[in-house]
């Protein structure tokens, strides 16, 4: 388990494209620059889609964990 304390958490378990990405965008827009968004997702494409979006949007993936089907991302808002 990570010791990074997120400022907000987004549960996308059971959701598929486009929801994890659209909700991630909405959630990161609602935190301050420097704060951390934690996302849980089990869409099989999440491991590709979420880091791809974070990179294009200029945010930083602080950490990634996988437990069974659930991928967890800690993303720091940079811009």
């Amino acid at each position: 388990m990570s010791d990074i304390v997120p400022d907000t958490e987004l549960d996308c378990i059971g959701l598929y494209c486009p929801l994890p990405l659209s909700m991630a965008k909405e959630n990161i827009a609602n935190i301050d620059i420097g704060q951390v968004l934690k996302i849980l997702a089990d869409d099989p494409d999440a491991e590709k889609d979420i880091p791809g979006w974070a990179k294009r949007a200029g945010h930083q993936i602080l950490m990634f964990e996988r437990s069974g089907q659930v991928a967890t991302f800690w993303i720091k808002r940079i811009r």
Partner: peptide, 18 residues
């Protein structure tokens, strides 16, 4: 369409290969 791809991804979580 996403309704096809997401149906298949849902099956992936139950052991199917896509």
């Amino acid at each position: 369409h996403i309704s096809v791809l997401n149906s298949m991804k849902d099956l992936q979580k139950n052991g199917f290969q896509l």
